[in-house]
Design a protein around this nucleic acid. Sequence first.
DNA 1: TGTACATCAGTGAACGCGCGTTCACTGATGTAC
DNA 2: TGTACATCAGTGAACGCGCGTTCACTGATGTAC
Lengths: 220, 220
Amino acid sequence: MAGTSGKQTAAKSTARPSKTRQRDYHVGNLDQLLVEEGTRLLRKEGLHELSLRKVARSAGVSHTAAYRHYDDKNALLAAIALNGFRRLHGYQDAAIRESGSDLNLRFLNLGWVYVQFALENPEYARIMYGGAGLDFADYRELATASRRSYRELLMSVRLFQRHNLIAGGRAKQKTLAAWSIVHGLSMLLLDGQFPAPTDDAAAMEKLVKDVIVNLYFGLR
Amino acid sequence: MAGTSGKQTAAKSTARPSKTRQRDYHVGNLDQLLVEEGTRLLRKEGLHELSLRKVARSAGVSHTAAYRHYDDKNALLAAIALNGFRRLHGYQDAAIRESGSDLNLRFLNLGWVYVQFALENPEYARIMYGGAGLDFADYRELATASRRSYRELLMSVRLFQRHNLIAGGRAKQKTLAAWSIVHGLSMLLLDGQFPAPTDDAAAMEKLVKDVIVNLYFGLR
DNA sequence: TGTACATCAGTGAACGCGCGTTCACTGATGTAC
DNA sequence: TGTACATCAGTGAACGCGCGTTCACTGATGTAC
């Protein structure tokens, strides 16, 4: 539902070379294609199995071609992670939009889509949150993108406070509490640490929302 | 404070070969030594830099000696992770012990030591929680150890419920909420995603405990 | 519209590297007598 | 207490591998005239 990027999908279907016909010498948007194939491999095989050479191979291109578009492997990983943050922002924006003026619903939805994003796009979790060893100091856009998610949450918390839905003061600390619970929930569920009904989408949504409500009550 | 394992430290100081004197041909507890050196390297250089050969070198032993004690690299990683869980259990047990009969304090402390463990032993976080790509199905003791932490939390939640400190019913879901918030908090702080006063221990402890209290109120 | 040419985006051979793992081995240890 | 010997815990050479990155190159593209 939330966060489906029509633009991305369209670009994919035109840019990706058909397996049957011969690919043109010039790919066109190889930079984008590499990000897409990298993401696909990440999802399919995991971070530990990802290499520049595999991504290039999967894009149907020699393994040195990537250097035309990215300084090195980390730069490609950073581009993938950045794409992940953009998609997360899409989820968040949609959650706010769809909640309309119902602020209680907005709190619930903002939390829910964070977890939903992680569950639907498990390939990003590790790369966006330190698992790839990417230093955000080397990739400013990543730091910016991460902070955008946080700021969106912070501004919502302040809005809720203005409407007396949660107690006043210490907005940053309360934002951290909200962020922590959905972040932790995402990671525990992704890692399979908690025996959750992963196959039953409705039950999962209920479980996640119940947990979020637990915190919501505490913030009042 | 909590969870300092005297036994481990003692074993380390006797088993680790002095850099100056010649190491005996037989190391003694090479299996343990490899876990210790692996942990040290993990802390110093991170998971991505860790290799069997480095661990062996760091233990002052040929890189094939490790196979006398561990089937392969993953088995060593699993042993390191298991050690991490044991230390976490130490933190948890100490938290319960030190809280005595004050159940409110117990809730707070149980949460606090989880985060404290992560902050004081950052090398474990990634390896214990899926980052190393270890399949817990291949290492039953890991699954068992992870579940022990969870069960300790769950039993505490049920205890709190019996004393009417938190609302009745859905103990598992409430446990998940508690686990999620401390897990997420740990990860966000470790990854430096949230601008926290990492250099000020007292301020950190207060921040963490305030966040935990946020949830505690919500669980009532 | 056609040609010359600069620029761009690929290729593929080559590099050195550290890795995990195997193997036949040897030195050290501990036990039976 | 001393010796023979089986067992154990190391060694180090060797393997094949995939990796990231570099380099000189060439084919494709687009623009100026």
